[in-house]
Amino acid sequence: MAHSPSDDATFVPGQPDMWALVLFEAMLFTLYFGVYMVCRVLDPQLFLESQALLDPRWGVLNTLVMLTSSWSIARCVQSAREGSYNAALRDVFITFALGLVFVVLKVAEWASEIGQGLTFTTNEFFSFYYFLTAIHFIHLLVGFVVLGIVIYQLRGPARRSQEIVETGATYWHLVDFLWVMIFALVYLIR
């Protein structure tokens, strides 16, 4: 099933089931964010003072890594659509590598924070911080499996399916935009 945006007809990128998952996950995270915000406004000073113990440069660095990985998987979809499978494979490997960079940065950041005595039980802010970043991290790990499926598909000429490539990319973008929200809510808002 090859999709071409140049056609007049509209299309759903990837499998519709993946979009159902994306919308479900998005709503679930909106609930998490809402609960976080309610707790935050109930004790704003605790949240502000705790948030000041984080280094937002970790957050922005990981945001730039995630955005770049999202751009890369978007290019993979375009290349596969045009039949340039070597370029598509290169782009999905770049996405995978950037995902690994995110993992290394996030683990290093957690290690640094835990080393300062800032753990899940330190206070309510840090409970939310570790919960939100860890649940995002789990989604990212699932993303590696999804990228593995895309690589497997692209490597075998008989297996290639544009729909699977688009479905995998859609999942990876979900991981990206959830991080964009977490970055703003956990590191930056006042």
């Binding site: 999709h3 945006p5 509209t10 299309f11 759903v12 990128p13 999202s70 751009w71 998987i73 978007a74 979809v77 688009e166 990319a169 859609t170 973008h173 990206d176």
Partner: peptide, 8 residues
């Protein structure tokens, strides 16, 4: 990136 612009 997710091509919603071209979606239904």
């Amino acid at each position: 990136f997710m091509e919603v612009r071209h979606a239904p």
